[in-house]
Write a protein that binds this DNA or RNA. Structure first.
Lengths: 159, 159
DNA sequence: AATGAAAGCTTAACGCC
DNA sequence: GGCGTTAAGCTTTCATT
C-alpha cells in the first residue's frame, strides 16, 4: 500500500479512541482521556492538538434541544436549477440562515436543502424567497411531521 | 393554556447568550463566559448546570470531519411503508448504525432517512437490508454528490 | 439568583528521554 | 512520539447577601 497522503499522517488506534471519546463527550478532560487510555496527559494533550490542527476535530459544540427552543419545524426542499448552475445556486442558498444543509444530489432534482425554522409561516416565507431566486427553476417540499432520529455523530467503529 | 410543563421555567436573555456561546464553542470556559457577560463565574456555573438539567443543553460534542475519516458517502432514502405502520418502521430503521436521521414526512413517501456510510458498497448493502425489512413497501434513493453545507446549529437570533 | 473566596483539578508549556 | 513537572487558570462548593 503506497503512501499517497498529503502531509497529514494517518491516524492510529489511539487517535481513533481519542476521537470516539471526544465525539461522545466533547468536554472530557485530557487527564480523564489519559487515565482511560493509560497514557500521560501531556501525550494526550499533544495528540488532541494535532488532531485539531490536521482538521479531524473541526470544533467543539454544545448540542441544543430544538423542541425546547421552539425551532422545530423541519422541511426538506428539492430544487431544480437552470441547466448547469446547480453549484453556484447551492452556494447562494447555503447562505440563508434557515438552511441547515445543502446537498447536490442525483435524481429528478439537483439540490436537496434541509431547512429549519420556528413556524410554518417562516417556511412559507422561505419558499417564496426561494421561488424568486435566480437560477431556481422549480422546487418540491416535504415537511417533517416528526423527527424520529437526528444524530450527526460518525460511526468510528468501521463495521 | 394549562401549565403542563414539568418544573422548567422559561429562559431569559442571559441564558440565551450562554447557549449561543456554548453552541459556537462548547469548550468556552465558564470563567470566560462570565467575563463576557460581566457576571460572576459561580453564577454562570449555576445557570449552565440548570440549562443542562432542563434539557436545553443536551450534550457536548467534538464535531469530526467526515471526509478526512472516510465516512463521506451520504444518501437520502425515501421510504413508503405498509399502511399506518410508519412510526413503528421509523423506530426500527433508526436503530441502524448507518442511519443518521429519520423523519416522518409529508408527500408521496412516509419516511425520509439520511444515511451515511464509507463506500457505495455499504449503501447498496443497506438498501438490500431495507428492501427486505418488515413494513417497507418501496423506497427511492438520492445520493449526495457533494455536500455544500451541513450545519446542525440552531439560529438563536430569532429573526 | 448572584457573589467572592478557597480548595482541588486541569491545561498548556518546558525540557528530558 | 512520549513523559513528568510546574505555573497559571479553571471548576466547584459554600457561606453571605
Amino acid at each position: 500500500m503506497s503512501d499517497h497522503e498529503h502531509t497529514s499522517t494517518h491516524i492510529d488506534e489511539v487517535d481513533r479512541s481519542i476521537l470516539k471519546i471526544l465525539q461522545s463527550d466533547g468536554r472530557t478532560a485530557l487527564s480523564e482521556i489519559a487515565r482511560r487510555l493509560d497514557m500521560g496527559s501531556a501525550t494526550i494533550h499533544e495528540r488532541v492538538r494535532s488532531l485539531e490542527e490536521q482538521g479531524y476535530i473541526r470544533e467543539y459544540r454544545a448540542i441544543l434541544d430544538p423542541k425546547l427552543l421552539g425551532i422545530d419545524q423541519v422541511a426538506f426542499v428539492q430544487v431544480e436549477t437552470t441547466a448547469g448552475r446547480f453549484s453556484e445556486v447551492a452556494e447562494r442558498l447555503a447562505e440563508h440562515r434557515e438552511v441547515q444543509e445543502v446537498h447536490e444530489i442525483t435524481g429528478d432534482f439537483d439540490l436537496l436543502l434541509k431547512v429549519r425554522v420556528e413556524e410554518t409561516d417562516d417556511l412559507s416565507e422561505f419558499l417564496s424567497k426561494l421561488g424568486e431566486s435566480d437560477g431556481v427553476r422549480k422546487s418540491s417540499t416535504n415537511v417533517s411531521l416528526r423527527t424520529v432520529k437526528e444524530d450527526g455523530r460518525l460511526d468510528l467503529n468501521g463495521q
